[in-house]
């Protein structure tokens, strides 16, 4: 079953062309890792998938709902797409628990008891049940990112987007976040991950996409892409990051 279908999308910021005709299809349960040099458009691509960036033209269909259709209620589609950001973006004025229950209560219209139960279960799952009543600034980066993952998962989304989730973390905290993501992948979540973690890509990705200059240059299984890249640009990039 197709979960995400992207056809020939274009996006410019002023004169800079961030996406220059990107098409791809992602199946339900697939884990796709997008790699590429900075400025290659990979984050922009991810942000287009939940309409944080509005595409200039092309089509995006999420779970059979066209994003670009004016009749589509974008908030409704976003409820089904969780997103995790490089800078965590937890709400600093709310406790960890409240960070995770807020959208459940206000958007999903769950009772606060139910929302809290779900939040506590998820905190268990990401390994920090004891931090429920803390505030984000009292947590380490790795802990904050795990709360951010729990917050997104609490909406029970069909798709999870990760925008360089470990890039702002100290090296010793990267593992704890990747472990949570690996578990999620094993449970069958549809995931699109922009990341520089080649180890993660090799271990859990079903497919790796290499982007450069706003286009998909090459895609394939991790084995194909890392061991036998077809394109020269892919080879050059990999030789820089895999040394």
């Amino acid at each position: 079953m197709v979960m995400i279908e992207v056809k020939d999308i274009h996006k410019s910021f002023g004169k800079v062309k961030a996406l220059n005709g990107v098409s791809c299809t992602i199946q339900k349960g697939e884990v796709v890792v997008i790699i590429g040099p900075s400025g290659s458009g990979k984050s922009t691509f991810l942000r287009c998938l939940n309409h944080l960036e509005k595409i200039d033209h092309g089509t995006i269909i999420i779970d059979r709902i066209p994003l670009t259709d004016s009749k589509t209620h974008i908030h409704k589609v976003r409820e089904e797409i969780g997103m995790v950001f490089q800078q965590f973006n937890l709400f600093p004025h709310l406790s960890v628990l409240r960070n995770i229950t807020l959208a459940q209560i206000k958007v999903r219209k769950r009772s606060s008891e139910e929302a809290e139960q779900i939040a506590r279960n998820l905190l268990d799952k990401v390994g920090i049940p004891e931090k429920a009543d803390n505030y984000p600034f009292q947590l380490s980066g790795g802990q904050q990112q795990r709360v951010a993952i729990a917050r997104a998962l609490a909406m029970q989304p069909k798709i999870m987007l990760f925008d360089e989730p470990t890039s702002a973390l100290d090296p010793e905290m990267i593992g704890e976040v990747l472990d949570v993501m690996k578990n999620l992948a094993r449970e069958g979540m549809t995931m699109v991950v922009v990341s520089h973690e080649m180890g993660f890509a090799k271990e859990v990705a079903d497919r790796v996409i290499f982007m450069d200059e706003g286009k998909i240059v090459e895609e394939g299984t991790p084995d194909q892409l890392f061991n036998n890249p077809r394109e020269e640009r892919t080879r050059v990039f990999l030789s820089k990051v895999l040394k």
Partner: peptide, 12 residues
């Protein structure tokens, strides 16, 4: 990022 996070959670 605060706006992005709120929007990505489906808030209007």
């Amino acid at each position: 990022g605060q706006f992005d996070a709120a929007k990505s959670l489906g808030m209007n």
